[in-house]
Design a protein around this nucleic acid. Sequence first.
RNA 1: GCCCAUAUGGCUCAGGGGUAGAGCACUUCCUUGGUAAGGAAGAGGUCGUGAGUUCAAGUCUCACUAUGGGCUCCA
Length: 604
Amino acid sequence: MSENLIGYIDDQGNILDTQSAGENCTATPIEYDNSEQALEIIRHSTAHLMAQAISELYPNSQFFVGPVVDEGFYYDFRVDEQIGENDLKAIEKKMKELIKKKYKIEKYEITKEEALAKFANDDLKQAVLSRIPDETISVYKQGDFEDLCRGPHVPALRFLHNFKLTRVAGAYLGGDEKAEMLTRIYGVAFADKESLKAYITMMEEAKKRDHRKIGAEMELFMFNEESGAGLPFWMPQGAKLRYKLEQILHKAHLVREYEPVRGPEILKADLWRTSGHYACYGENMYLTEIDEQEYGIKPMNCLGHIQIFKQTQKSYRDLPLRYYEYGVVHRHEKSGVLHGLLRVREFTQDDAHIFCTPEQIAPEVLEVVEFVDSVMKLFGFEYTMEIATKPEKAIGEDAVWETATQGLIDALDGNNLPYSIDEGGGAFYGPKIDIKITDAIGRKWQCGTIQVDFNLPERFEVEYVDEDNTRKQPVMIHRAILGSFERFIGILTEHYAGEFPLFLAPTQVIFVPISDSHADYAYALKKRLRLEGLDSEVFDKNDSLNKRIRTAEKQRVPYVVIVGDEEVQGNSVAIRNRRTREQYNLTQDEFMVELNKQLQEGKI
RNA sequence: GCCCAUAUGGCUCAGGGGUAGAGCACUUCCUUGGUAAGGAAGAGGUCGUGAGUUCAAGUCUCACUAUGGGCUCCA
């Protein structure tokens, strides 16, 4: 038996640890390394080691569950003391002491009845047992520490070296918001020191491109304690960036035959009652009163678009009719979930509602999927699609839901587009396809969404006149491509680490005149760029040339352009590559051609 | 909303019961320089807000607000 053997993988892909497999196992061995299976075993055992350390440091602690997750492991437990980030070091130290005791990890099996009796005075273990259907329960033991566990584990503590406890958090027992909150500690573990180090470095790099940090540095956006949480302010640089994104997307909508519309920010509460928002979404809505009438600030834009559709009589010839709006919405998000621009209380959706016939659903959904794809491609984003089905709180008949859900499935299946299913994750008025972008540190954020809705048209008696002169109800497709400008720009910022492509960059060119006498030339260039719709700045402050070049380089602008006697005489520019520090000269006209070429790259 | 943590000039941070400090940024002056920090002077903070303990609180305690890491929920 190899020194490095920590388990086996059987025909079904299940991991067997050495304790379960016995001496003469013929399944494929798992060696101690960074393979997916090995890491699962190592991390699970590290979680147990942590629990053992905690139980020694805090004798009253009781343990719930300690699974392996994507990035590492965690353990949930109850403890009398408050545990903060500063206590993690002490726990790590204790873990290392325990490793030195060279405990073997042993496994034995008991019946469920015996287990219930064994842990009779531990209500958390009772809770764990109640979730296990099996009649035979396995227990793992290392030193004096025993824990209910399915495994798999490494054979002995000596395999556990390269770990780090990363954060302490609260977590509801069983994930239920109404249940008791336990303490959770997260950690990571690898087979070797280098991988652990690489992981820590990666997290530090991710921190450097955090949109909140870059947003402050580049003066893109801000929040302010006096104004309230989750309410972003767009500073000039951020507003310029956002405006460019809005313009690109505006043109893309027009090309695809969308019509711009705009609805009011607040609508009478009765309208929200008709729609079902009041009952199903009310806890997220801000309500107000005007002249003794209740009003609701819109959390979604659909009602406005429905009113506009209904204002004039529609024919089947008008369908599909696509209304779009950069709609500002307000939602009462819980204070604890706010997160930079990625989760706010006021945001602007790139929202559209497509009114169409049932037959038009599939082609329209496909068209939107294509739209999404072209936008994601423009920015180089990876994304996944998820079909979300009927949630608990919902309006409308089951049959209607089934038809709508099937419509979405057909549209994706028919075109071999990959997706997963999110059971019960739909909007209260219809099923949806969610488009999730993977960000710089691997988190997934919902951005785009496509929702089929038979319910609101019915509730608001939305109608069109069909070919046979009868009145029919259209289907509504709610959709957003970016999701919201706030979230999307947050993700974009991290994606590009603030170095936006020319067609998005808030400042696209910085001119550095060599001395005062070249400032006029620089300002003339700035004016010329302005007329082409390009934003530039002139760095002519009373600082040394070196200092101004340094400052300009650090601005994350696409172009730093130096102008001095040579350039003024030759009507040219000296362009500096901020990465290689190399420089090349172009005439003004050549430069304009180059800039316009790069602007065109922002077309979709 | 819940658990844990944090809050000191515009930014990044030091200080740790006896009434505040650095670097960068900012202002003014000198310097007009061909590719990543030229020099000098200056201004700027009731240490998040409100209570409490104390002879004395930026420092200790509590509440609130905001922020961060999670849970739950979502674009």
